[in-house]
Design a protein around this nucleic acid. Structure first.
Length: 922
RNA sequence: AGGACUAUAGCUCAGCUGGUUAGAGCGCUACCUUGACAUGGUAGAGGUCCCCGGUUCGAGUCCGGGUAGUCCUACCA
């Protein structure tokens, strides 16, 4: 074994071995445990959020696999309609063509090509993380099977009246030329203006003044609205105004929607271009005048002067023309929320079109109940509120997209516009007995990507066929996901699955936080603060990192700033930390209900932890290889105090880890393992093994006992740790497991250690705590007195009870070795103590004689510090115990405990004071 | 506007159903190349638990009200 742990040397090798051996596939077992991976974009690449999420899922999967559950981690990718189509369109753009030049069929071919080309990236990266996904069942949302499921669902829901086609105002993306759902619109506060326009009254003097943030929409105005109880305008209701620039008359109407306080109290109503106005228009039977085309340029419905103008150009023109007419009253600065497409970034236009919708309200009801009655539980709980709030006010879901890449809608239209929904054109013709003379045209649109994602938990298992996999693995056990897709995905999965299968898609939803950078900023390409998890595993040079962060920017002018920040933050690039360290970092930060800031210091610490593990194993191997480890049958062993103690400790740790993982507290699991391995096993147990292994006088039974315990406990905690750190544990386990008498091809399929109380030796625990206290006392004196570490000391103990004396007799070997002592003896009470530095372990007094060693002033100061601490503590305790209310009302155990504490403190204080006095008398 | 979450050491975070001397890692200080490990060891410094009230014998922990930050949802043209 190398002196330092080299992750790169082992990770890929082990992953290939595991995969080739089929260990990731379900291994049978009574209890099924399944997780469906949130399918990443097939042409995407891994980011920190994936890394975090996969790490959590893999820990759960490996844990349950080792528990003997029939464990399936379903893998697959998503076709990601808009995102993928955009990438390919950009590629075409670089060649100076667009998708229409190619035509639909050729274009889709191109996209498939791109999928084949780049589709391996994300799956390769998932492998690098050690994710034990069942690759033999990999699925893609546009596979034949899944596509058939999508079509089946569409047809069923259509026939049940839960999918319908309708003309509504949708969120229109003028750059992508498609409708998008409410969820794909991001509204942000932006600076803008509020223009005040005067609309002249028809057939009379005077005017009404309306305020608008979007002057160009006035070309589509259908009315001016005032509040029905607004006295200022009551006399205008029912009258007509002259719509400037358009030569039309529009009515003044009364509607409660109007806020009297805002603007002028008069609102121009543009039913075809504003969601609120649309509702007002419907209430009042106003005409819906669509003044835009698909590109959001002015259409032929508007006056000729504006036709063909882009919406922003049209805005300038309208303002100029209104100003020229003297109808611009004033312009105010105004902040407003601007809706933008989450993909394209352009301003979204409310736009009147025919689209397909899912009647979400009906589907939502059982989905709400499933969470209310606990059939599905969110972890942490508070996300249920978010879910309820959205579900109880759910809007119909617009599922058609004017794209080419996706599941085409199985609907056909005849010349009259009648709709036929079915499996294929032939099926539709047959079903409706349509003659050859009837010309059918298939709907051009495809379905929202999330439509197929919503079926993910069961479509991947072979639905609509009732497969065995469905029977065994559905509902899945837990969904691991980020809160950002609760609405997009989680809610829709629940609705669809309940409706189509009358069962929940999963029992638990574990919602994790967002991974942010060290400053708490969201990681994004445009901010240039993205860290690629693979770069943390393999390392990356500074120049390469800068290149990655500054190429392909939407705003190239940011490159210099990004470069500067990167140079400052990573002056030496990023060191290679390995997968296990990265994963452990994720776990350590994965407490519930908060985002995580990714701190490089942390991963470095866990890289060191890997090295610690590595070297602990080296030590064990060094002492056990080719030695009698007492694993043979009938082998005689004698277990030392330390052996018995560490055997109990590892059991306690097993219990803690199991409880933590069962509660999705990976931070607590990782912490328990870290503390046990480093602070107990390495710091104490390995040190305590040395006096026995290196003692020529120690019995063979004792040596066997210690070797057996060294190897046995190591083997146990490797298994405990394996779900979190798969690679290093496998590498070491392969070498040491034979010494522990274990057989098996891989640690992956070994049983997960179960805590058993039988192994916990309370007496040994107390003895070791005593031992630690004495050693710490001596080390403290050594450290504070600046006694050279190499200097062997003679130490005296006194003032303890019989147990202390017994413990001294039993443990002097340990004490000598660990505290570097020449000698340690009991000093009887009647003998005058030499001048010495003193420490306390409970009542036991530890004396380090001063002769030639101890600086009087230093000891003076040290004692005073200790006394000061005790005194302030005592004051607090005395105050508490002299409070009659406390004595009367607190539980007796608490009072007794405090009293005991006070007595101990008083005794300690007295001892130290005496000691101080003697020091000062010298 | 409504809602959620967060506030604990210089930094990143634990602290479970109220009772410890409030913890860990990183960083910092001093000493140490001792035969697993300098990606190490030993010792140490460092906290008004955001503020104000309340409940309680007792509050970092529970309740109310603030302040600051993050986010979500819905939005006034």
């Amino acid at each position: 074994m190398d002196k330092t742990f080299q992750p790169a040397a082992i990770e890929t090798r082990w992953y290939q071995e595991w995969e080739a051996s089929g260990y990731f596939a379900p291994q049978g077992g009574e209890n099924a445990y399944s997780i469906m991976i949130p399918p990443p974009n097939v042409t995407g690449s891994l980011h920190m959020g994936h890394g975090f999420q996969e790490a959590i899922m893999d820990a759960l999967i490996r844990y349950h696999r080792m528990l003997g559950d029939n464990t399936l981690w379903q893998v697959g990718t998503d076709h990601a309609g808009i995102a993928t189509q955009m990438v390919v369109e950009r590629q075409l753009e670089a060649q100076g063509i667009n998708r229409h030049d190619l035509g639909r069929e050729k274009f889709i071919e191109k996209v498939w090509q791109w999928k084949e080309e780049s589709g391996g990236t994300i799956t390769r990266q998932l492998r690098r993380l050690g994710s034990s996904l069942d690759w033999s069942r990999e699925r893609f949302t546009m596979d034949a099977g899944l596509s058939a499921a999508v079509q089946e669902v569409f047809i069923r829901l259509y026939r049940e009246g839960l999918i319908y086609r309708g003309q509504r105002l949708v969120n229109w993306d003028p750059a992508l030329h498609t409708a998008i759902s409410d969820l794909e619109v991001i509204s942000e506060d932006e600076p803008g203006h509020l223009w005040h326009f005067n609309y002249p009254l028809a057939g009379a003097e005077g005017h009404v003044t309306v305020a608008t943030t979007r002057p160009e929409t006035m070309l589509g105005d259908a009315a001016v609205a005032v509040h029905p109880e607004d006295e200022r305008f009551a006399h205008l209701i029912g009258r007509m105004v002259q719509l400037p620039l358009c030569d039309r008359l529009i009515p003044v109407i009364a509607d409660e929607y109007v806020d009297r306080e805002f603007g002028t109290g008069c609102v121009k109503i543009t039913p075809a271009h504003d969601f609120n106005d649309y509702e007002v228009g419907r209430r009042h039977g106003l005409p819906m005048l669509n003044i835009f085309n698909d590109h959001a340029a002015i259409s032929d419905k508007a006056p000729p002067a504006y036709r063909g103008l882009d919406r922003f150009k049209a805005r300038e023109r309208v303002i100029a023309d209104m100003t020229a007419l003297g109808l611009l009253d004033k312009v105010d600065e105004h902040r407003l929320n601007v809706p933008r497409g989450d993909r394209s970034g352009v301003v979204i236009e409310p736009y009147l079109t025919d689209q397909w919708y899912v009647d979400a309200r009906k589907l939502a009801k059982p989905a709400i109940e499933a969470v209310e009655n606990g059939a599905i539980q969110f972890v942490p709980r508070q996300w249920e509120n978010t879910y309820f709030a959205w579900m109880r006010d759910i809007q119909d879901w617009c599922i058609s997209r004017q794209l080419w890449w996706g599941h085409r809608i199985p609907a056909w239209y005849d010349a009259q516009g009648a709709i036929y929904v079915g499996d294929s054109e032939a099926a539709v013709r047959e079903e409706h007995a349509l003659g050859k003379d009837v010309v059918l045209r298939q709907d051009e649109d495809v379905l929202d990507t999330w439509f197929s994602s919503a079926l993910w938990t069961f479509s991947t298992l072979g639905w609509p066929a009732e497969t065995e996999e469905l029977a065994v693995f559905h509902p899945s056990t837990v969904l691991v996901t980020g809160f950002d897709i609760i609405f997009f995905w989680v809610a829709r999965m629940i609705m669809m699955t309940l409706h189509l299968r009358q069962e929940v898609p999963f029992h638990t939803v574990y919602v994790h936080g967002l991974v942010r950078d060290g400053e708490g900023q969201k990681m994004s390409k445009s901010k240039g603060n993205v860290i690629d998890p693979i770069d943390l595993i393999d390392g990356i040079g500074l120049e390469e990192l800068i290149r990655k962060r500054t190429t392909g920017l939407m705003q190239p002018q940011l490159a210099a700033k990004i470069e500067k920040a990167t140079r400052r933050q990573f002056p030496d690039g990023i060191a290679p930390y390995g997968t296990d360290a990265l994963r452990f970092t994720y776990y350590s930060l994965a407490s519930t209900g908060r985002d995580i800031k990714f701190d490089l210091g942390r991963i470095e610490g866990y890289r060191n932890f890997c090295n610690k593990i590595w070297n602990a194993a080296r030590y064990v191997l060094m002492n056990c290889e080719n030695e009698d480890c007492g694993t043979g049958p009938g082998s005689r062993v004698e277990l030392s105090l330390a052996d018995r103690w560490i055997s109990g400790k590892v059991q306690e740790t097993a219990a803690q880890v199991a409880r933590a993982i069962d509660n999705y507290r990976f931070d607590l699991a990782s912490q328990a393992l870290y503390e046990f391995i480093w602070n107990e096993y390495c710091d104490w147990y390995l040190e305590l093994s040395k006096p026995i292994l290196w003692d020529a006088d120690a019995s063979l039974d004792a040596k066997r006992g210690t070797r057996q315990t060294l190897i046995r406990v190591l083997e146990i905690w490797l298994r405990l740790l394996h779900p979190l750190m798969p690679f290093i544990t496998e590498e070491i386990w392969q070498v040491i497991s034979p010494l522990a008498g274990k057989t098996g091809p891989t640690i992956m399929l070994q049983p997960y250690p179960q805590a058993g109380d039988g192994d916990i030796d309370t007496r040994a625990h107390q003895d070791i705590e005593w031992l630690k206290a004495v050693i710490l006392g001596i080390r403290n004196i050594r450290g504070e007195m600046n006694i050279p570490p190499g200097k062997e000391l003679s130490v005296l103990l006194r003032n303890g009870n019989q147990t202390d004396q017994l413990r001294l007799a039993e443990n002097s070997q340990y004490l000598k070795k660990l505290a570097k002592l020449a000698d340690i003896r009991w000093l009887s009470q009647d003998v005058e103590a030499p001048m010495a530095a003193t420490a306390l372990a409970g009542e036991l007094e530890i004396l380090v004689p001063m002769a030639g060693l101890i600086d009087k002033e230093a000891e003076n100061a040290r004692l005073k510090k200790e006394i000061g601490k005790l005194e302030s503590d005592l004051i607090r305790l005395q105050g508490k115990l002299s409070n009659t209310a406390f004595i009367a009302k607190a539980p007796v155990e608490v009072v007794a405990k405090e009293q005991e504490k006070m007595q101990a403190q008083q005794q300690a204080l007295q001892t130290l004071r005496e000691q101080l006095q003697r020091i000062q008398e010298i």
